[in-house]
Amino acid sequence: MKLLYFAWLKTKTGVAEEDVAPPPEVTTVAELLAWLQQRGPGHAEALADLSALKVAVNQEYAQPGDPVRPGDEVALFPPVTGG
């Protein structure tokens, strides 16, 4: 599974992208975020406030209950501020 981090998610985790292999119990966006919070201090800080977070799975906005699978591209970012 390929993870992408943007804006301050990238700053706080210290990575722009990484390949991860979550355990098979991780099947949803919410479960993936909970698992990522345990990944290290940078991730814990970046993911401390999940209400400030948007998630896209394979470049589509996703909800907490949406499925994630091996091979997916999952992006984590704050609410958008373009325009």
Partner: peptide
Amino acid sequence: DARDSDTAATERWSTPKKGAAE
């Protein structure tokens, strides 16, 4: 920061109470 932070989204990403997500 996004201007109109969606307050309804506050609980949206709350972690499910599930031991399997270790």
